[in-house]
Simulated assay, not measured.
Amino acid sequence: MRNTPDQEKELDESPLTDGSDELYERLSLKVDKGQEPLRIDKFLVQRIENASRNKIQKALEAGMVLVNNKQVQPNYKIRPLDEIVMYSDKEAHGEEIIPEELPLNIEYEDDDVMIINKPPGLVVHPASGNYSGTLINGVAWYLLQKNKELSEQDLPRWGLVHRIDKNTSGLMVLAKTEKAVRSLAKQFFDHTVKRQYMALVWGDLVEDSGTIVAHVGRHQRFRKLFDAYPEGDHGKEAITHYKVLERFGYVTLVQCVLETGRTHQIRVHMQHIGHPLFNDDTYGGDKIVKGTVFSKYRQFVDNCFAVCPRHALHAKTIGFVHPATGKDMLFESELPADMREVIAKWRNYIANRLA
């Protein structure tokens, strides 16, 4: 038996894989009044499209299934009006994780979580056509060195609960236990994780601060791109709060705080309001957007592009409740060298013009 139309209305699915940097989704279901007692693993297999009993049982064993907000065992028998929540990896990751020795900038680590400061240019996890040299390949090697008893099957693809773009730098949190996965997945889904980014954008923003509310989803024509849909007719809800930190006339340094975690959210939202990220070759920031086209200015901008050869975006802050201790954790990182240098160049350029 599959979901009836009425049951489908009660099934709450989180943002789709192609619209979110958060790698887990939440499925919720309320049991009918007349439901007979039935093992929860059998019930979920019947209700969730393409779900295998093996996958359901693994989710139950990992504590990724809650009934009335409590963890249950696979032999739990559902009751009428039970409220079931299941957290599930949204992507099918059957690819082998090949451990590789790679430099990792680990800001913090304990038995439950790891905070990594990702450099620009590093892909987060293996995907089609890109099976090695990723952050997760490096994490796999690192964990194997710390614990020789680990098998390669135990290595944490599942420990990754969110991601940032290849050319975005900054902080990421990885889970090292199943309990940590469950806790962090829920915090990301509930939008309680604190994430602050620094971005250099084109133009001089009119307001010192503001909020951008526009759904983000696949571009209707160019499927590799994302677009903003302020009417909410496509994509998923996305909210970005921004604050001006420093103005350089032609470009502006801003702080962005995310309520939601859609793929390319800041890049798409800033383009949507007419201020694409500096040197963002996907969303129009890799050309002169503001200012003249005279040779000296053009040469200066080209020099800035050479200094920061990627979109100028850095995940500066991440905060969450620790999965084991319940304490608030907050981590901050410095801007990387390329962004520091390009900001200094703009600061000097404007100072010399005003002199």
Score class of each variant (00 low, 15 high):
122 L>A: 11
215 H>M: 04
160 L>G: 12
210 G>I: 03
352 N>F: 08
82 D>P: 05
279 N>S: 01
348 N>T: 13
268 V>I: 13
31 V>K: 09
350 I>L: 14
271 Q>M: 12
70 K>N: 15
99 P>N: 15
253 L>H: 14
88 S>E: 05
60 L>H: 05
80 P>G: 13
174 L>E: 02
17 T>W: 12
26 R>S: 08
317 T>N: 06
131 Y>A: 06
72 V>S: 09
108 Y>I: 01
83 E>C: 08
12 D>R: 02
204 D>Y: 01
156 P>N: 01
318 I>P: 01
320 F>T: 07
300 F>E: 14
340 R>Q: 15
341 E>R: 12
236 K>E: 03
272 H>C: 05
178 E>A: 10
106 I>M: 09
324 A>V: 01
173 V>T: 13
52 S>Q: 07
266 I>P: 08
226 F>V: 00
144 L>I: 11
147 N>D: 15
116 I>T: 07
70 K>W: 03
40 I>V: 11
108 Y>S: 03
10 E>K: 09
343 I>S: 02
286 D>T: 04
289 V>M: 12
203 G>K: 01
18 D>T: 12
146 K>G: 02
151 S>I: 02
12 D>F: 11
78 I>R: 06
115 I>W: 03
38 L>P: 04
148 K>Q: 15
339 M>N: 00
162 H>S: 14
263 T>H: 06
165 D>Y: 11
68 N>E: 12
58 K>V: 05
37 P>C: 07
22 E>L: 14
298 R>L: 01
227 D>E: 06
10 E>R: 12
